[in-house]
Design a protein around this nucleic acid. Sequence first.
RNA 1: GGUCCGGUGGCAGAGUGGUGAUGUAGCGGACUGCAAAUCCGCGAAUGUGGGUUCGAUUCCCGCCCGGACCUCCA
Length: 452
Amino acid sequence: MVDPAYPALRLHDSHAREKRPFSPLDPQNVRIYFCGPTVYDRAHLGNLRAMLCADVLVRLLRTLYPCVTYVRNVTDVDDKITARALENGEDISALTERTTEAFHEDLRALDILPPDIEPRATHHIGDMLDLIARLIANGHAYEAEGHVLFAVRNFPTYGALSGRSLDDMIAGARVEVAPYKRDPGDFVLWKPSTPEQPGWESPYGRGRPGWHIECSAMSHRYLGESFDIHGGGDDLLFPHHENERAQSLCCFPGSKFATHWLHVGMLLSNGEKMSKSLGNFHTIREALERSPAEPLRLLYLGAHYRSTLDFSWEKLEEARRTLDRLYRALERGNPQPDAAIPASVMDALCDDLNTPLAISTLHPLADAAMQGDQDAASGLLAAGKLLGLFTVSPADWFQSGVDASAIETLIEERLAARKSRDFARADAIRAELSASGITLEDGPSGTTWRKA
RNA sequence: GGUCCGGUGGCAGAGUGGUGAUGUAGCGGACUGCAAAUCCGCGAAUGUGGGUUCGAUUCCCGCCCGGACCUCCA
C-alpha cells in the first residue's frame, strides 16, 4: 500500500498527454520497464539522462511502495553493433561485453542503481520468435521474402501512442518503402541475415530480429502482459514505443501493455540534440574526467525530465558550486541519518517528478543547517539521499584526493608568519596553495582548507 | 512538407486566473590583516498581436522564434 504519510504520485503519461494519478496494477509490486542502451560504443551524456531519470523515479517508487521490479534491457544485436565490430575487427560478443561493462561502470560512477533485471536481447531470441509466431497466427504479421512484417493497418489504434496517423506519416513520405511491404508503415519483426551477419535459425530462415520486438518479448517475460510504467528517451516514442505497443497488444489481446508511458526530454548541446550522428556529444567518461559525478547528477536534476536541457561545462561547474554550499551546510548542521524526507521534497517529486522544484526547497534547509539547525540538516541529507546526492561525507567532498599533510605544514608555516605579522609571506602561502587548487579559510577556531 | 513540444529576470529554472519561487551572476553593506566562507540588503523577467475575463504570465486563436519526431538514436 502507499504510505499515507506521502502525497499521491502523479505522473505525466505520454499516451494520455496529461498528468495522471499513478495507481499500480499491483501495489505490492510496481513494475517498470525502461529501454536501455544499444551497446556498440561508450554512452554519452545524452544517453545518461533517461537512465538518471529512471533512477530517481525508481528511488521514489521504492519509498512509496513495498516492492518495485525495474527492468532495463541491453540491446546487443543491432546493425550498428555488427558494423562497429567489423570496423574494429572485433568479435561481436567481445564488443558488446566490453561496451556493456563500460556502460555499467559509467552508471555506477553516477550512483545510478542497477535494474533488478537487465535482460539482453540475444538471450531472448526464442521469446521473440514466440511472439512473432503469435502475430502471424492471429493475422497481425506476414512473411515476405524472408522477412516477417507487422501489418500496421490491422491494428486500429496504431499511432495512438505517439499521436500521429498513418496517413500523415505517409504524406511525409520519408520512409523508403520496401517492395515487399503491404503498407509503407509496416515494420520488420524478423529479417534475413547474410552469412556474415549474426543470425539465428527460425521458421523464416536464418535471420535476426527487428529492433522493436525485443522489448515486447523481454517486458512480457519479466513483467507480464500488463505492467505499470514504460519509459525511455523522447526519441523512442516513435517508432520504437509505438511499434512495441502495437506488437504487444496484438500478441495479448485484452492486455494493457504499459499503463503509463514516460518520455524523457532530450539533452541538447548548443541548442541541438546531443547525438552520435551529429557528433556534438561528450561521453559520460569524459565528463567524469572533468568533474566529480554528483554535479552531473545535480545538473540533470535541475531541469524537469520532460523539458530539454542544454548541456554546458559552465552549468556543470555551477552545479559543483551549488553542491559546495549544500555540503557546507551538512558540515555545519551535523545531520542525523535516516531522518524523514522533508514534505516539500516529497510533494515536488510526487508531482510528476518535479526535481527542480524539489531542489529549490533544499536551499532553505541548507540555510537553516548552515546556522546549526540539526533537524534541517538531517532533512537535507535525507532529501539528497533520495535524489542520489550526498554519497560522500563533507570531509571527502572538500578534501579527498589531496595530500593533507603537505597542506597542514604550509598552514603551520603561514600561521607563524601571521603571528609575526609577516603578511606578505602569509599571502604568498595562500597564493601558492590557491594555485594548486586549495582554498584556505581563516576562521575563529583556526585555518581550514578545502579543494577550490 | 506532416505531427508534436516549448518560448519566464544576464544565465539556469519552477509555479500560478488576482501585486512572478529558487539558484547563480551583478551591485551595496557586515565580517576579515587580506581572502574565503557566512550573513543582511538592492536592482532585474513572463516572445508578439488579438480574444475570453472584473482581472491572464497562466485559458483560446493567429503570428514570430527555437527544438524534437517522421531514418539509427536515451
